[in-house]
Design a protein around this nucleic acid. Structure first.
Lengths: 252, 252
DNA sequence: CAGTGGTCTAGACCACCCT
DNA sequence: GGGTGGTCTAGACCACTGG
């Protein structure tokens, strides 16, 4: 007996596991359509709602994409590797193998770009940036799309008083991006903190990322500090949790 | 107009948002029982299944705990901050201090401890540890429980040939833990890589963590390299995604 | 033992896709 | 227009909790 206490499978899980195994075996390749809920219901002798819930599991996990009129189609899943700490002297360590295969080097498209002056940024942003009661923030928002698939939302907050008049308030920040411009202003980032949480997306996040509402997103907040220890930027990122592998490499 | 394309709310979302707002307002404090599905169904004029799905959203998010005979009770949510980098910095593990004391100030209990010789570790573990076809791995598995709530599973893999006969193969590894013993063996970890993924739990993981099957877990794989660049340990952690904030701090 | 949530069935209406 | 998934209703049985 291989029964595990508490690990008893429901019908939904049974069917979902079967489908996953079939995909893994290659019975269904990328772009192929899985059996519909009615076909599955007939095949397994269950109600169609039960079959649907099994399909829903796969779409929540990001293995398939379910569209209304069409069926559930298998996605070609190639996670993106995001290196949190830039490589320095990578030579000998570059050969260390990683646990999960994932891709680098694919440049995403960027759209939905907005640059605004925000008089009322979130409270935690005000706190970390140490904004006075009348101070505003410069907010740079954008969306990253890889191979037609939205994978990340990002919103950078900077003290408006610090960046007013600089290219940071323009759509195009020039070579080197925001950090190079902060350096021009005498506030080059020297230290970073990244904080990671996982939660369900808001309705708006789910819509902009084109993910089901029960697919988790990774909230990744990076704070940049200048040499004086002042927080000069907060970048709040929202990642499709099925699309990313995060990577941090550091010395003891 | 504040209409957002694709952000239209379903009844389930409406009810779930109302309940969340009520909890946030303090209408329901930690330990309080939310209205049952029948009460909600009557109150909103919807089917009980619809009300249940709203409650399910909250339990997926970790705001409440739903038990069969009892209702859905509000949890006191205090996420654990796990500092990725200082917690393994040298000096922390040489001094007999436990790794967890570098984290929050709350020390978890550890149970479900097993130490085994595993002849067939997962393929990616074989690869990274560069195990030969006949080599085995030492697997140290345990579960961390904080304030009665399971929050993390962990399994460390080490080359059996490297650690055979050392305290690493014992339940109690002595002061400083695994890393201090690896240092005794001349393979002190000098560099670490942490890789982070998010996915749905397996039935077994969900059972051991006592979380619903649709609550995501964070898979955190830490690889430790010695001075020669050899991978000497892989620690595969499985975190309740609602219980943790991960934190990485580093210089530019 | 009454009430609860967990799972499942049977069937409905709608919006959307594809042919 | 037929088939699909998304949402919802109405009702059933079971396992478990609590008084």
């Amino acid at each position: 007996m291989t029964d595990e206490v508490g690990a008893q499978r429901t019908k939904v899980q049974q069917i979902a596991d079967d489908l996953k195994a079939a995909i893994e075996r290659g019975d269904y390749g990328p772009g192929d359509r899985l059996p519909g809920e009615n076909a599955l219901a007939a095949q397994y002798g269950v109600a169609s709602l039960t079959a649907r819930r099994a399909l829903k599991v796969l779409s929540t996990e990001g293995l398939v994409e379910s569209k209304k009129g069409a069926g559930a189609r298998v996605l070609s899943f190639r996670p993106i590797r995001r290196r949190g700490i830039p490589r320095v002297a990578s030579g000998q360590w570059g050969s260390g193998r990683s646990i999960w295969s994932a891709d680098d080097h694919r440049a995403p498209d960027v759209d939905q770009i907005t640059v605004d002056e925000d008089a009322a940024p979130p409270e935690h942003v005000r706190d970390v940036l140490e904004l006075g009661p009348d101070e505003t923030a410069c907010v740079r928002s954008r969306r990253y799309v890889l191979e037609g698939r939205p994978v990340m939302l990002a919103a950078s907050y900077l003290p408006q008083a610090l960046v007013a008049g600089s290219p940071i308030t323009q759509a195009d920040t020039g070579p080197g991006g925001i950090y190079a411009r902060l350096a021009d202003l005498g506030h080059a980032p020297t230290r970073f903190r990244e904080e990671i949480r996982v939660r369900l997306p808001t309705a708006d996040e789910a819509a902009r990322l084109s993910i089901p509402t029960d697919r988790s997103v990774i909230k990744l907040a990076r704070t940049a500090f200048d040499a004086d220890g002042r927080a000069v930027e907060i970048n709040e990122m929202t990642l499709d949790s099925a699309a990313y592998v995060l990577d941090y490499e550091f010395d003891a």
